[in-house]
Design a protein around this nucleic acid. Structure first.
Length: 301
DNA sequence: AACTAGTGCAACCGCGAAAGC
DNA sequence: CGCTTTCGCGGTTGCACTAGT
């Protein structure tokens, strides 16, 4: 098509904004409000195009912008919303007060996307990349050889358990599936990429522990009754456990909860699907957090 | 100390949708 | 109804900073 850019005009400045330009833009908007971006630069005495002014204001100068690192709650919200909305950054941003679409997009592309890839999850489809996982072959060999059954219960113990009733329920389902049908098991894992990633991480951690200590762990197997209890939604984690942190989404925009609830209703049509709303209470020890290094909400480099 | 590679983020660009005429 | 203008969104780029060698 080749439409000329609005910034191609002679005399229109590009590049980083100076404090003086910022001050002019803020002063003008405080006096006259935002909008009419086309004419704003001239009126405000700025040698910028309207588009550049709008971007500068919405992404940086707006007074209600929240600066600093994303909290874990925000990070999980972004992932959940992205799994539903895709790259609709403005819609995602609308659910996270104080965050801009540009900021969320950058954070996704620089941090979350890479982390999901490391975990073997396709960041586009939010499904596991089974082709890249050794676990899949481990499962396959286990399922094909009943005498060397893959022990899922071992994954539920240790320093960072899957202490989440939702995940425990899925694990329980998978345990019974293991006995019933290998096909169902594989399907369950494919539908729950985060569980698969959790399992993978737990297995890797156990493997590394075994390697470092050169001893096999001699831990008791988790009581299957506990699993069934969790399956029935009665599981109560230890209250003093740091691994069970109630994630508060009350600070998020109410429309976020509504959106997720509505979406979960769409997904859970046959009563078998997992309610997305329940994922909002994912413990801080979930697989998504375990691979990140957060200290008091600040991510360490 | 100098160089290189990796990372994070502000800003730009092009396109499509909405609004105005 | 069609054309033009304006706005907003998503993808991409460029640069400053940091870590590693």
């Amino acid at each position: 098509m080749g439409r000329a850019s609005c910034c191609d005009k002679v005399g229109v400045k590009k590049g980083p904004w100076t404090p003086e330009e910022d001050r002019k833009l803020i002063d003008y908007i405080q006096k006259h409000g935002q909008g009419s971006w086309r004419t704003l630069p001239k009126k405000a005495g700025l040698a910028r195009c309207g588009k550049s002014c709008r971007l500068r204001w919405t992404n940086y100068l707006r007074p209600d912008i929240k600066r600093g690192r994303f909290s874990f709650e925000e990070e999980e919200a972004i992932i959940q919303l992205h799994s539903v909305l895709g790259n609709k950054w403005s819609k995602i941003a609308a659910c996270l007060p104080g965050r801009t679409d540009n900021e969320i997009k950058n954070y996704w592309n620089t941090c979350i996307r890479k982390r999901l890839l490391r975990m073997g999850i396709d960041p586009v489809t939010h499904t596991p990349r089974l082709d890249l996982l050794d676990l899949s072959s481990l499962l396959a060999s286990s399922l094909c050889n009943p005498e060397s059954q893959f022990d899922f219960s071992r994954l539920l113990i240790g320093p960072e358990t899957l202490a989440n009733s939702h995940q425990l329920k899925m694990a329980t389902d998978l345990l019974s599936s293991q006995r019933q049908s290998s096909n169902i098991l594989c399907q369950g894992l494919q539908e729950q990429p985060y569980l698969l990633a959790s399992l993978q991480e737990q297995q890797l951690r156990l493997s590394s522990q075994q390697l470092s200590t050169c001893t096999l762990p001699n831990e008791p197997f988790i009581d299957e009754a506990l699993l069934m209890q969790a399956s029935a939604g009665q599981f109560q984690p230890a209250t003093d456990s740091n691994h069970w942190t109630s994630v508060s989404y009350q600070s998020l925009d109410p429309s976020f909860t509504q959106l997720v609830t509505e979406t979960s209703n769409l997904i859970s049509t046959d009563g078998q699907g997992y309610n997305l709303t329940s994922l909002l209470s994912t413990p801080a020890s979930s697989s998504l957090n375990s691979s990140s290094t957060y200290t008091n909400g600040n991510q360490l480099k």
